[in-house]
């Protein structure tokens, strides 16, 4: 579907008359409102999610290589800066997850017996599923 970029489309004035004024977007627009700041932070959290994936892959790789490699990985990840990075990453991952769950009821219009389910139960179901999945994974790992 091809669409002319809005910025280049002529308006109804059709080019006659003086050009309308376009206000430039200030560099720090995202500091002007709490909602904008949270939004930018949530966008940024994607980077940390990616980091967690890389970290997990590195760990899985080290485990596959045998116990020597795994010990070296543990030493490496025990360094203060790796721990710090992971703590920061955890905070961002939490921000990401919590805001995602908060959004769920707005994306899902669940109807039960002809009535739209209120946001509370939908959010609760997500947390419940999260807890169940975590428990299942923990059980799988700890049992072995």
């Amino acid at each position: 579907m091809s669409r002319t970029p809005a910025s280049r489309r002529p308006g109804p004035a059709g080019g006659s008359g003086p050009a309308p004024y376009r206000k430039p977007v200030p560099t720090f627009w995202w500091l002007r409102r709490r909602a904008y700041l949270v939004f930018v932070l949530r966008e940024l959290s994607g980077v940390f999610i990616a980091w967690f994936v890389v970290f997990l892959l590195l760990m899985a790789g080290a485990i596959a290589e045998g116990s020597g490699e795994y010990e070296r990985f543990q030493d490496w990840s025990g360094q203060w800066w790796v721990v710090l990075l992971n703590v920061i990453a955890l905070l961002f991952v939490l921000l990401h997850t919590l805001t995602w769950f908060g959004l769920a009821p707005r994306a899902m219009a669940v109807r039960l017996r002809g009535r739209r389910v209120r946001p509370g139960p939908i959010v609760a179901t997500h947390y419940l599923l999260w807890a169940l999945l975590t428990a299942a994974v923990a059980w799988l790992i700890l049992k072995g």
């Binding site: 809005a6 489309r9 002529p10 308006g11 109804p12 004035a13 309308p20």
Partner: peptide, 23 residues
């Protein structure tokens, strides 16, 4: 209104929205 080209004083140009609306 922010994010729209200003034609004069407090009047903005809404052509962009009108195009999108038909789309």
């Amino acid at each position: 209104l922010a994010n729209f080209p200003v034609v004069r004083d407090l009047v903005v140009e809404l052509g962009d929205f009108m195009n999108k609306l038909t789309e």
